[in-house]
Design a protein around this nucleic acid. Structure first.
Lengths: 252, 252
DNA sequence: ACATAACGAACATCTGTCATGTTCGAAAGA
DNA sequence: TCTTTCGAACATGACAGATGTTCGTTATGT
């Protein structure tokens, strides 16, 4: 598990340079060449890069997001702070649908000891909550996307359409006043829309870096959100623009 | 993990005697009293027994089934043999719904490297299959029952009602020609019925001990099953009676 | 075809984790 | 009050996972 840092280091280096040799990466990370080869094998399986004799070449285009395993531990302190704030916005007894993604996984963890009805949209979050005694856990149907384990498809849509939640906690890949809330994956976007439609109140979580980003798939305009929770890296203009769209912004 | 045997030993001893002292259990298992106390704590959390000062008293009535964690490793060799036989009955490209329970979990594992569409009815099986590359994994909606992680409720029923499978693999707590296929849990029974209704062919798995047992909740008559896979502990009369009901019986 | 570099299987080592045991002060019950 | 049980804290040992090293094999370039 301690290899995650090195994986990120390698992923970033290869992505920047386009391709890189095993020896270079070994020097960069301070690990042996054998270890680098083993890492490259893992990353190649995850589809991050492609091996060739002597090194590896990046497969991640600028528009794509790195796989779940790599994002999971990034800026986890910030994510936990955001998650705690979201948890504070939710009252005992509420029913909550929690989106997929690493930030929302932290939200799910923050709800573990509460007394709620929770439907997570990712199996990672489901697994984090299966032994939570106090809460009623609901699993939506669907097809889990590899790695991410986000549930998508008609079964997910049907599960959401059958229910009405007090609050939806939605993650995103980009959120700007102009382009609204956007996601990398088309199917994910459809699920997010369904989740938003099934909830009375919508809370979006977005690390500040996402407030200047727009991804491929449009989900909803900023005005469809009631609360946005972000971190203190957000600029004045960004928060002001969201407030102007009628959104309550909470910075932690 | 190596504590599972001792857990079963303690559970059985306490269930037989009604209640038992810590010192007695320590002598029985050969472990220290501290270890027995830690075990009792775990088992009390699982609802198997109740602690009192100096010992523990059984909470498992004769009609109840021990929790998943205790059944998981029981007779796993037999279960694997049964599972392999079931896997052999399924052709590539089929769609399969796999019931909850420890035997069916083995079936799910046996399908991991096949090219199929699989919908498991328990999160244990879902987790066992999330990294299976070849197969299309479908997750039904529902409320996971604690420990067992079997999905039940209206969402599960709706997920099953929306689909038609080639084969349903169904587990049971009891299966006799007279009483048909029975389960301990009422909600589980409803899910099993829905699974049977959604499949063209029904394969039931039942260790031979279950062929002389009847549980609380009726699921389906034996005649609703197409194939029963059991182990060689089944008696001639038992298999003959099933065959008379129009079932193909396979003994491994 | 040959030489060289890269590869990966096998083994050795190290480290962190988990189950277990031991000790001892605290708490419950007689 | 006294005895027994309990459980927190620490020590021990087994074990799994990660990393490094060695060496025979394989691929690539000249």
């Amino acid at each position: 598990m301690g290899s995650t840092d090195r994986w990120r280091q390698i992923t970033d280096a290869v992505r920047e340079a386009g391709r890189m040799g095993v020896a270079e990466l070994a020097a960069l990370t301070g690990a042996s060449e054998m270890t680098v080869r083993r890492d490259l094998e893992v990353l190649a399986e995850q589809g991050v890069l492609e091996r060739y004799r002597g090194g590896a070449r990046s497969l991640l285009l600028q528009g794509e997001e790195p796989p779940f395993a790599l994002r999971a531990q990034e800026g986890s302190e910030t994510k936990r702070r955001i998650a705690a704030e979201v948890a504070a916005l939710i009252a005992d007894g509420e029913s909550v649908v929690v989106d997929s993604g690493t930030t929302c996984l932290e939200v799910a963890r923050a709800l573990e000891h509460r007394r709620l009805t929770v439907m997570p949209l990712s199996l990672h979050a489901v697994n984090a909550l299966t032994s939570a005694a106090g809460l009623t856990l609901l699993v939506p149907g669907g097809r889990p996307r590899p790695g991410e384990l986000a549930l998508t498809g008609p079964l997910t849509a049907a599960s959401l359409a059958a229910l009405r939640f007090d609050t939806a906690v939605i993650g995103c890949c980009g959120l700007t006043p102009a382009d609204g809330l956007t996601a990398y994956d088309l199917e994910d976007a459809a699920v997010k829309r369904a989740a938003i439609a099934s909830a009375r109140r919508v809370v979006a979580v977005a690390e500040s870096a996402k407030l200047s980003r727009t991804a491929l798939a449009f989900v909803a305009p900023a005005s469809a959100l009631h609360v946005v929770v972000t971190d203190d890296g957000a600029s004045e203009e960004q928060t002001a623009a969201l407030v102007a769209a009628g959104v309550t912004v909470r910075t932690v």
